[in-house]
Each structure stands twice: as C-alpha cells, then as structure tokens.
C-alpha cells in the first residue's frame, strides 16, 4: 500500500488508562513491518491517572520524522475521548483533517467536582464537523462494553481507522501484529474488537454505532 501524503501525520489522543500508547504501538509495529519509517512521539506526564495522553504517529517512505507534528499539520485524529480530540485540533487541526472519535466522554476532575462545564454531545459533534473535512463518531466504549470491557475501545477504533483506509494497512496486517502482541487468552477478544471496528464502516448493521459527516466513506 502507498501513502497519498508523505509524511502522513496521525494523532491518537485520549486520557491516561485508555490504551492510547498500545494503539499507537500496534499501528507503528504493523507499519514498520511494511517497511515504512515510523516515528511516534508520546506526550504524557507522570503515572497518575486522569491526565491527557497524546501520541503523534508519523508515517513516511522517505525519512525518519521528528517526534512532534508541526502546527496545523495533522492529517488524521483518532480521538479515544471527544474533548481530547477537540483539544488537539487547537494546535494541530486544519480544514482538511479527518477525525475519528469515540463518543464516550471521560469527565475531567474540574467537571466532576462542579467547577467546569463539559460540552454536550450535540455541541461536540457540531464543532467536530465544522472544523474537519470528514468526521466519524463511534460509540466505541459501548461496543467494547458489549465485548466485556471498556479497554477494548482502542482496538475497535483502530479497526475503524483501517476500514476507512486512513492508514496504509490492511485488517490482516493489524491482526498479524495483534497475534504477536497479546497472550493467547486475550487474543480472540482483541481480534473480535478489531473486526467490530471494521464492521462499523463496512457492514450496514455495524453502522448503527456510527455518526458521520457524509455518506461517502
């Protein structure tokens, strides 16, 4: 598979504990196996939970990129949490960007204690569509809960990303890396999560979990 833009800049963003780093590693490993240069820059603080976590994944056929995407140069945002997707749009967004976002909020501490407001789902969707070329919102946490655990939302979203052909990888490329990465007892469930994420785009019944800006995929 080839890159329609070099480097291709992807940001995976979310909150500590959502499996952001794992998602970027799976994609990165699959891409290196296909002879791409991959640079992943990870921004996170100390081990405490609750802080924003952002991975910059930069894919090139030509060179090893720097670990940080320049301002306004993200091509795709994979948001494991909706306001985190909006947050990274600030520095990295542009009118051509494609956004794939999980619908389930994780409220910041200032919101849970009643000191700050979290925008409602309708506002988030309208802002995401306004500020992007294409936006997809997936009920990935709900889907993951149907598989038994919310942590699988990251793998589901990686599946959706692959189904959208947003990265130069096939489902089999990812499945191969998942087989190398997970122990036997967690393998099946992760492969199912990947399939579920693919189906949200590929199958009519899967699309019940999806909102999107245009019918054209």
């Amino acid at each position: 598979m080839f890159l329609n833009k070099d480097p291709l800049n992807l940001i995976i963003t979310g909150v500590g504990g959502q499996g952001n780093v794992l998602a970027s590693q799976l994609l990165g490993n699959a891409l290196v196996a296909k002879d791409f240069f991959v640079t992943i820059g990870e921004t996170y603080g100390a081990s405490q939970r609750g802080g924003p976590v952002m991975s910059h994944l930069r894919i090139s056929k030509k060179a090893q990129c720097s670990p940080l995407i320049p301002q306004g140069k993200a091509d795709i945002i994979l948001g494991l949490e909706p306001v985190e997707a909006l947050r990274v749009m600030g520095n990295y967004g542009n009118p051509h960007i494609v956004i794939v976002v999980n619908s389930r909020p994780i409220y910041p501490l200032d919101v849970t204690v009643g000191n700050a407001k979290y925008p409602n789902a309708q506002i988030i969707w309208s802002l995401l569509t306004e500020l992007s070329h294409k936006a997809y919102m997936l009920d990935a946490t709900d889907m993951a809960l149907r598989l038994g655990t919310p942590i699988l939302a990251n793998i589901i979203m990686v599946g959706t990303l692959v189904a959208l052909e947003a990265v130069p990888l096939t489902q089999e490329d990812l499945a191969g890396i998942i087989r190398e990465t997970f122990p036997a007892n967690k393998l099946e469930i992760n492969l199912r999560a990947l399939q579920m994420g693919m189906d949200a785009i590929k199958k009519p019944e899967g699309r019940n979990n999806l909102r999107r800006t245009s019918l054209a995929l």
Binding site: V15, G45, A46, Q48, G50, G51, P52, V83, E84, L86, R87, G90, P108, L109, D110, V111, A116, K117, Y118, P119, I123, I124, L127
Partner: peptide
C-alpha cells in the same frame, strides 16, 4: 468548550 484536564 474544552475544559482543562488536571492531574489528580
């Protein structure tokens, strides 16, 4: 619209 997310 984007609330701060502080560590706790």
């Amino acid at each position: 619209f984007v609330p701060e997310r502080v560590l706790g």
